[in-house]
């Protein structure tokens, strides 16, 4: 009997330690494998934030979710460290959906050009409303990946 209890305790401790180690080592889920919680167009989501920032932030932040945005590529920025940022938006407005791209999938971006249509999914990090009136406001996404449409 005592032996049985000991075995149960040891197993429980091992499970606990295993869970702890797994939690500790856990990395973020790969955006590519996560189903988006919201699918929107760049124009619509910018409008949603410009109309009611608080409500939109609550909606998209609460889920801590991956959102999928499609729109026109306004600009592609590459910095000296090789980080890519893709801006979705329109030529008329300074406001964008700003997608900081996941460095794991930089190779996917090689054919992407401004003014093309693109669908991108990533983690919503917030809305930066422009109080200078110069830059436009941005919906910011992190760890973004280009959604490659297999039908194309």
């Amino acid at each position: 009997m005592k032996k049985k209890i000991l075995i149960v305790v040891v197993v429980l401790v091992l499970i606990g330690v295993g869970y702890g180690v797994k939690e500790f080592m856990r990395t973020r889920p790969d955006s590519k494998s996560v189903t988006p919680k919201f699918t929107v167009t760049a124009v619509d989501i910018i409008k949603e934030f410009e109309t009611n920032e608080a409500a939109a932030t609550k909606k998209y932040l609460a889920a801590n979710s991956i959102i999928q945005v499609s729109g026109e590529v306004k600009d592609i920025k590459q910095d000296e460290k090789g980080y890519y940022t893709v801006m979705l938006g329109t030529q008329e407005s300074m406001s964008t959906v700003q997608c900081s791209m996941d460095t794991l999938y930089t190779a996917d971006l090689k054919d992407l050009k401004p003014q093309q249509k693109a669908t991108i999914k990533g983690v919503f990090t917030g809305f930066n409303s422009d109080d200078t009136g110069l830059l436009g406001s941005d919906v910011k996404l992190n760890l973004c990946v280009l959604v490659i449409d297999k039908n194309q």
């Binding site: 939690e23 500790f24 080592m25 856990r26 990395t27 973020r28 932040l61 900081s100 983690v123 919503f124 990090t125 917030g126 930066n128 910011k140 992190n142 760890l143």
Partner: peptide, 13 residues
């Protein structure tokens, strides 16, 4: 201006 949710750590936790 920086969004705090945009900070990337090595570990998710």
């Amino acid at each position: 201006s920086v969004l705090l949710k945009g900070f990337e750590f090595e570990k998710a936790l």
